[in-house]
Amino acid sequence: MEQTTFKAICELIAQRKVRVSAHAFTRCSNRGILTTDVIAKAALGSPIEDYPDYHVGPAVLVLQSDSTNLPIHALWGLEKGTREPAVLVTVYRPDPDAWMPDFRTRRR
């Protein structure tokens, strides 16, 4: 899998060039996930789906863990036509009915 978007996101996070969307902030708050944990653990995550041609800008779905080591999916992206900041678009706990036990593969 092409990891250009993930690499760019990780580099921006390391430079503290990050924006949390209002949607992501609300989703984290509603699920007891700290946005600071999502940001801090992003580089430790594994990219599972890359969307380089997404209509609002390149994005990547990353399997990460929260502060209690439970799996989460974080969608990171860049706004179309920009190179920074890394944008945390949304965060959710993967549904076991929709994902295989590794949370990296969608059930068909």
Score class of each variant (00 low, 15 high):
residue 83 R to I: 08
residue 84 E to M: 04
residue 39 I to C: 05
residue 78 L to E: 05
residue 3 Q to S: 06
residue 91 V to R: 02
residue 14 A to T: 15
residue 61 L to M: 13
residue 99 W to M: 14
residue 93 R to V: 06
residue 51 Y to G: 00
residue 85 P to V: 07
residue 31 R to E: 08
residue 87 V to T: 15
residue 98 A to C: 07
residue 31 R to I: 01
residue 3 Q to K: 06
residue 106 R to C: 09
residue 18 V to K: 06
residue 70 L to Y: 05
residue 93 R to N: 01
residue 9 I to Q: 02
residue 56 V to R: 07
residue 102 D to K: 03
residue 91 V to Q: 05
residue 28 C to H: 04
residue 51 Y to F: 15
residue 1 M to S: 14
residue 25 F to G: 04
residue 27 R to H: 09
residue 56 V to K: 09
residue 73 H to V: 04
residue 106 R to T: 08
residue 25 F to C: 07
residue 76 W to T: 01
residue 2 E to G: 06
residue 101 P to E: 07
residue 5 T to D: 05
residue 49 E to N: 03
residue 16 R to K: 14
residue 52 P to K: 01
residue 15 Q to R: 15
residue 46 S to N: 13
residue 86 A to D: 10
residue 42 A to Y: 03
residue 20 V to K: 08
residue 49 E to I: 05
residue 27 R to N: 13
residue 40 A to L: 14
residue 79 E to L: 06
residue 87 V to F: 10
residue 70 L to M: 11
residue 52 P to M: 06
residue 85 P to W: 11
residue 32 G to D: 12
residue 2 E to F: 07
residue 106 R to W: 13
residue 99 W to E: 05
residue 29 S to A: 14
residue 67 S to D: 10
residue 1 M to E: 06
residue 81 G to N: 06
residue 24 A to Y: 01
residue 90 T to R: 09
residue 17 K to M: 11
residue 72 I to W: 02
residue 81 G to C: 05
residue 21 S to P: 10
residue 108 R to Q: 13
residue 59 A to Y: 00
residue 25 F to Q: 14
residue 16 R to V: 12
residue 73 H to D: 03
residue 89 V to H: 01
residue 83 R to S: 14
residue 107 R to P: 03
residue 72 I to L: 12
residue 85 P to M: 09
residue 4 T to W: 08
residue 39 I to E: 10
residue 82 T to P: 07
residue 40 A to N: 14
residue 6 F to N: 03
residue 84 E to A: 09
residue 13 I to T: 06
residue 58 P to Y: 00
residue 85 P to L: 11
residue 61 L to P: 02
residue 11 E to A: 14
residue 66 D to W: 01
residue 107 R to Y: 07
residue 30 N to M: 00
residue 19 R to W: 02
residue 93 R to D: 01
residue 84 E to H: 04
residue 79 E to V: 04
residue 12 L to I: 13
residue 100 M to C: 11
residue 17 K to G: 03
residue 63 L to M: 12
residue 28 C to G: 15
residue 25 F to R: 14
residue 93 R to M: 03
residue 62 V to D: 03
residue 57 G to A: 08
residue 41 K to Q: 08
residue 108 R to C: 11
residue 101 P to V: 06
residue 19 R to H: 13
residue 14 A to S: 15
residue 103 F to Q: 05
residue 58 P to R: 09
residue 36 T to K: 11
residue 44 L to V: 08
residue 18 V to T: 15
residue 58 P to Q: 12
residue 8 A to N: 14
residue 34 L to G: 04
residue 43 A to V: 06
residue 86 A to Y: 00
residue 36 T to N: 11
residue 45 G to T: 01
residue 88 L to A: 05
residue 59 A to Q: 14
residue 90 T to M: 13
residue 100 M to G: 00
residue 21 S to Y: 09
residue 27 R to S: 13
residue 91 V to W: 00
residue 50 D to W: 00
residue 43 A to S: 13
residue 104 R to H: 11
residue 105 T to W: 01
residue 81 G to M: 11
residue 88 L to G: 01
residue 52 P to R: 07
residue 30 N to Q: 12
residue 31 R to N: 13
residue 37 D to Q: 10
residue 87 V to Q: 08
residue 92 Y to M: 08
residue 60 V to W: 00
